[in-house]
Design a binder for these strands. Structure first.
Lengths: 334, 334
DNA sequence: TAAATTTTTGTAATCGATTACATTAAGGAG
DNA sequence: CTCCTTAATGTAATCGATTACAAAAATTTA
């Protein structure tokens, strides 16, 4: 494999000149530039990035830490990240933690080892304090999760108000007894969505009934089980709002399983708008997160932070919207 | 950020000794080893991987080139890759090409630039000749796609015989007029699955009717359209075998759309066994690929190839199996 | 034409580890 | 007690680029 010195010799110049041609830093005469380029082509020269990285003390790589890559929600975010990264000649290292806190911290450590220039945490299992501490030292942006009061760059939607909008919608359809299936309550977004549900009820003067609130864990099966508990109530809800689409699907399965109709007997709403939401029957009414845009935006902020670590942290709240499909009794729109 | 020389000074030894402690290469007295370790801890020292990589001329990174990360089929393969990579202290760079050949080649170039030690192509858009040529020069393994007669490491299932099994199953249920929706026929696996379908028909003495074969492109909508063409036939099929699950879902939608029942009027079979297959109604009978295992196996072969580039190329064929669910009229098994 | 300025090119230090080779210390044999 | 072997440690070259600084060449100005 040819190196720079080989190119230099063949072109009859010094390595510095070759490096300048490579960097495109104008200070080379047209003539020698051509000579060098010819030599590079002849030797099929590719610059060694390991050497460049060491000299420049950067890796041109960022790590995306995600709990589980096979979750379709995350892959759209990753695509957004990847797109911006590619535009700026950055590589994306995959940090699939399998929901393990230790793995999460290990991936973050890559930065201290200079194997990466920055991290994106797409949700975090590590404690807020710890993350805050880390963010002081390395370029870090959190996507999809809001850590309250933290001096930290974050890109999210407003989980509280969007949940409230769901309640608005259900109430406007005449529902007064609305069940809620939350995510794990140790996760912040779960609590925020619950908060929005509760404040939505209050806003419409509906009384809050704790038996209508069930805790799931974002899986289809937990949605199924939580929905069953709601259906077992003496007075079951006429609508169920699940904190993500998977649980909404579990809910639909549970309802159908009892011989009821969706939306005829019970309306269902989800959250996230993953692809399955359009495929399931009835197609799911759900809060659509701008996943791709979240990824893009997060990466842009990270790039800024890498270039200028003293950039003021910012919390970007992107707009979401409620996509009305069939599962609440509206005609299919799309 | 402390470097090795700082640790050396603090411990009162030379950098060589520190390096030896780090490498765990026995030649250090217990006493100095402890001194050095104390110093490392005190300075919170992390070795600079950029420097190590340059010196060792390796990046400890591999690239996974995939057409589209938001396709759930690929993410399971990636998880398998990632697991093995992690076990061997390798990082996984994400090469999402968005189905662009140029991007594919660019990611492969990362190896020549020493930014990666090997590549995994999870399917390939580049021409077989080109891939073969590249594989001579760099450690490369192809997953999920079989390139005929090539001296190339590959990990796949047997697409021909598994498709034939699907026909076997449908015939055993009494179907004699079986429609087939292929993937794009410029892709090898599409042709293999078609081949299996055709030989399956032959095996059971069924005549081949070209109007029963429709070409799709692996998307839900192409499945929908292809199925409609089949339903428009004077004598429509009683069963449809789609070359992947997405197209099978499109097929189910098309059938229901005309007021027919699945499996009552028409049976449907898919291929791949992605998560949606279990969620759709009726749950899809489909060929289950060992996606995670494909990933694991591919990565293991790549590691071998990196360590010893002259390793003989091998083609591993992993076992798949037909998962019988509801879409062909069998009771739900799972 | 000589001096001043600008442009182009080259020399060598540098990034931070690893490791071949040299050196010193320690232990064992005679 | 000396010589030899082995273990422990240190010195300095090395990986392949980038870049500060120096030097040479070309151009402009007077």
């Amino acid at each position: 494999m040819a190196k720079m010195i080989d190119v230099a010799k063949l072109a009859g110049v010094s390595v510095a000149t070759v490096s300048r041609v490579l960097a495109g830093s104008g200070k080379v005469s047209k003539n020698t530039k051509e000579k060098v380029e010819r030599a590079m082509k002849e030797l099929n020269y590719k610059p060694n990035k390991l050497a460049r990285n060491l000299r420049k003390l950067e890796s041109k790589t960022i790590v995306v830490v995600i709990p589980d890559i096979s979750n379709p929600f995350f892959t759209d975010v990753i695509r957004g990240i990847q797109q911006v990264a590619q535009q700026h000649d950055y590589y994306v290292l995959l940090g699939d933690t399998g929901n393990d806190v230790k793995a999460e911290l290990d991936f973050i450590d890559l930065i201290k080892e200079r194997a990466a220039d920055g991290v994106i945490l797409v949700t975090a299992r590590t404690s807020p304090e710890k993350i805050l501490e880390i963010a002081q030292e390395v370029p870090l942006v959190v996507a999809c999760e809001y850590i309250k009061g933290a001096h930290l760059s974050m890109v999210t939607i407003d989980n509280v108000s969007s949940s409230q909008k769901v309640v608005d919608h259900l109430v406007s359809l005449g529902h007064r007894r609305i069940g809620f299936i939350s995510g794990p309550l140790n996760v912040i977004i779960s609590r925020d969505r619950l908060k929005g549900y509760v404040s939505g009820l209050k806003k419409h003067g509906l009384e809050q009934d704790s038996s209508l609130i069930q805790e799931g864990d974002f899986t289809i099966s937990s949605g199924f089980e939580s929905a069953n508990r709601l259906l077992d109530l003496a007075e079951p809800p006429t609508a169920v709002f699940a904190s993500n689409d998977e649980m909404a699907i579990g809910t639909i399965k549970a309802i159908k399983n009892r011989g009821f109709q969706v939306p005829g007997d019970i309306a269902v709403v989800g959250f996230d708008d993953i692809q399955i939401a359009t495929v399931i029957e009835p197609a799911l009414t759900t809060v659509s997160q701008p996943k791709f845009e979240i990824g893009r935006c997060t990466m842009e902020i990270l790039l800024e932070l890498i270039q200028n670590p003293s950039t003021r942290q910012e919390h970007v709240v992107l707009p979401e919207h409620l996509v009305i499909r069939e599962s609440c009794g509206y005609p299919l729109v799309r």
